[in-house]
């Protein structure tokens, strides 16, 4: 069980208000991702839930129990830190069994749970090594192992993959998703990487400067971003924004169109421009088109991998009409 409710939670460090009043409900078994740019208060929010920081005001409840005043150990949550925070002088086995030892479980039970966790995480052969003798991915798994043996109400992850190389990150992403599918425990996952958020989350919470900008499923945010910030943050490559006369034609202050919803042609289309940099990924090509009449920023277009368009070519872009997002002067979506 892991239903977590935050009511009017705020946090200030001295005079600096990092989290303005914030409400959030996390359902049992959900995979929730907090995503936002660096320094927006994601870690702080997670640490408030964990109990590592005290809230300045507001209430936190976990499973219907008031948890605001509870010390971290009593909240029944387990956390995986960005630096893994493994105990360097203990073997992997001792690391994983540490929470069990602190809980006073007998040795046989400890061993049983450690072996089980090690099996799930492919760590059986490494139980007697020290963390220093493991690779980054293995350390990550030890940290997860230490979290799962406690059978917590919810897992908290703070940018757990940011110290891994790209290939390993994709692997661990899948492993964590699989772990969530098999444990069906609530997981709260913090990241600044919207790809991680989109691929893993049941529910994404987009944060900016401590504010919740939007909460929703990944596709929800992709299809109906509530404002310019969310529209620009979710989706890769970024949505293109166009202001001015072209936007006014759509009765909006700004219109947004995603690179994948633009078609490109050498002969005809709505908007004219010249091709700048093109990025060939094999499966796709991202073309940066300069259309000075529309916007000073280059417009990104996603096209198929074999496209025969080169630097300096004059091209025409056509947006899919039903995929144009319209925003008003305040940056809010007009629906």
């Amino acid at each position: 069980m892991g239903r977590i409710i935050l009511e009017q939670v705020t946090k200030s460090f001295g005079d600096v208000n990092v989290i303005p009043p914030l409400d959030l409900e996390i359902e049992d078994g959900e995979f929730v991702v907090f995503v936002g740019p660096s320094g927006c208060g994601k870690s702080t929010l997670l640490r408030l839930i964990a109990g590592l920081e005290d809230v300045s005001s507001g209430q936190i409840s976990i499973d219907g129990r008031a948890a605001t005043e509870l010390p971290p150990a009593k909240r029944g949550l387990a956390m995986v830190f960005q630096s893994y925070a493994l105990y360097p002088h203990m073997s992997v086995r001792k690391n994983i069994s540490f929470p069990l030892k602190m809980a006073g479980l007998d040795q046989a039970e400890q061993n049983k749970r450690v072996e089980a966790a090690a099996k799930v995480l492919n760590l059986t052969d490494y139980l007697d090594r020290r963390p220093g003798q493991l690779s980054g991915g293995q350390r990550q798994r030890v940290a997860i192992g230490r979290a799962i043996v406690r059978e917590p109400a919810a897992f908290l992850f703070d940018e757990p993959l940011s110290n891994l190389d790209a290939a390993l990150r994709v692997n661990m992403r899948l492993e964590i998703s699989e772990l969530h599918n098999s444990l069906e425990t609530t997981m709260i996952y913090v990241t600044h990487d919207q790809v991680e958020a989109m691929t893993m989350a049941d529910k994404i919470v987009v944060l900016r400067a401590g504010h919740i900008e939007q909460v929703g499923t990944p596709l929800d945010l992709y299809r109906n971003p509530r404002n310019l910030f969310v529209a620009g943050f979710i989706g890769s490559p970024k949505m293109n924004f166009i202001e001015g006369a072209e936007a006014a034609k759509h009765n909006a202050a700004t219109i947004g169109i995603r690179p994948e919803h633009l078609s490109i042609s050498k002969s005809e289309g709505q908007w004219k421009g010249t091709v700048g940099v093109s990025e060939h990924l094999g499966s796709d090509t991202f073309l940066h088109v300069h259309a000075k009449d529309l916007t000073s920023e280059p417009i990104t277009v996603r096209s198929d991998g074999e496209v025969d368009i080169h630097h300096g070519d004059t091209v025409f872009l056509s947006p899919q009409d039903d995929k144009i997002h319209r925003f008003d002067k305040e940056g809010l979506r007009i629906s």
């Binding site: 590592l52 971290p72 150990a73 830190f81 925070a85 540490f98 809980a103 230490r146």
Partner: peptide
């Protein structure tokens, strides 16, 4: 000493003495 280690231990239920 990495403060995250102490925080991890705190979450693992270790008292100050532990």
């Amino acid at each position: 000493l990495d403060s995250e280690q102490l925080e991890a231990a705190e979450m693992d239920g270790a008292s100050w003495l532990s």
